[in-house]
Amino acid sequence: MSVPAGGQGGSRSLWDMLGVSEAIASATDAARGLGTGRFEMSPDELRSVRADWQAVAEDLDVMKRDAEPLSQVQGPGAEAASEGQAAAANQSGLRYQADLEAMQNYVGSYVAGLDRVIAEYERTDAGRAEVFGRRHGELG
């Protein structure tokens, strides 16, 4: 789905408007690992990425609520032309809402995945700290 880009004759995708394209580009740059072939992020960096994706999820919630009237259009008259136009508008509104819902599901899954990664990272760090503390105590 594309929308006019500020009257410039071009178009921007919904992903661009939500900043998802930037988030993906940023994650892709980070994934390159500066040529090391490795992908590393600190827990704080992961939390920052999660916050960005959560903001996208919240934007999608607002957009979906705002789109509800797009599937409740009524024609100005009771003739076939008005009813046909209203039906077409409603069908388009329903498709738009379905697209937003699909995006919500994707973004929600991504946020949940980040939550799992962050939790695992913290468990691993806590385990290492415990082992280090025991070893340090034995040496001291």
Results as ranks from 00 to 15, higher is better:
123 R>F: 08
38 R>T: 10
78 A>M: 05
41 M>K: 09
11 S>G: 13
95 R>Q: 14
17 M>G: 06
88 A>Y: 09
41 M>I: 04
91 Q>V: 03
67 A>P: 08
36 T>Y: 03
137 G>I: 02
41 M>Q: 14
124 T>G: 04
41 M>E: 08
70 L>N: 00
116 R>H: 12
69 P>Y: 04
43 P>M: 04
2 S>M: 06
51 A>S: 14
48 S>P: 00
133 G>E: 06
132 F>C: 01
78 A>I: 05
6 G>Q: 07
33 G>K: 03
47 R>M: 04
56 V>H: 03
74 Q>N: 10
5 A>T: 01
96 Y>R: 02
62 V>N: 04
24 I>P: 00
62 V>T: 14
60 L>T: 06
49 V>H: 00
138 E>N: 10
3 V>L: 10
60 L>E: 04
34 L>K: 15
56 V>T: 09
85 Q>F: 15
57 A>D: 02
138 E>H: 08
93 G>C: 10
67 A>Q: 03
103 M>C: 05
67 A>F: 04
127 G>S: 08
107 V>R: 00
138 E>K: 11
44 D>M: 12
71 S>R: 14
78 A>Q: 07
44 D>P: 01
34 L>M: 11
63 M>T: 05
97 Q>G: 11
88 A>K: 13
58 E>N: 14
104 Q>M: 11
30 A>D: 07
25 A>M: 08
9 G>Q: 01
57 A>V: 02
58 E>S: 14
104 Q>G: 13
36 T>I: 10
129 A>K: 10
42 S>K: 09
13 S>C: 07
69 P>L: 05
123 R>P: 05
59 D>K: 15
6 G>R: 03
129 A>M: 12
72 Q>Y: 00
32 R>I: 15
131 V>Y: 03
62 V>F: 08
91 Q>N: 07
56 V>S: 02
29 D>L: 11
63 M>W: 11
86 A>K: 00
101 E>T: 15
35 G>S: 12
22 E>S: 12
135 R>L: 15
15 W>H: 13
89 A>D: 08
12 R>G: 02
109 S>R: 11
81 A>W: 12
12 R>C: 06
62 V>Y: 08
91 Q>G: 05
64 K>S: 15
74 Q>R: 12
54 Q>E: 15
51 A>W: 05
96 Y>G: 01
29 D>K: 13
131 V>R: 09
46 L>A: 11
41 M>P: 01
88 A>H: 09
78 A>G: 08
137 G>C: 01
12 R>F: 05
53 W>R: 02
127 G>Y: 01
81 A>K: 14
87 A>L: 12
83 E>A: 15
95 R>P: 00
114 L>I: 03
78 A>H: 04
106 Y>T: 13
31 A>N: 14
36 T>M: 06
114 L>C: 04
19 G>M: 05
74 Q>I: 09
139 L>C: 03
43 P>E: 09
119 A>Y: 07
48 S>L: 09
36 T>E: 04
35 G>P: 13
19 G>D: 04
15 W>A: 10
58 E>F: 10
16 D>Y: 07
134 R>H: 11
17 M>I: 09
43 P>K: 03
71 S>H: 05
75 G>H: 03
127 G>I: 02
60 L>N: 04
3 V>A: 07
3 V>K: 01
73 V>M: 04
129 A>R: 14
40 E>L: 12
134 R>G: 06
109 S>W: 06
45 E>C: 06
94 L>F: 06
80 A>F: 09
87 A>M: 11
21 S>C: 01
24 I>A: 08
82 S>F: 12
131 V>W: 06
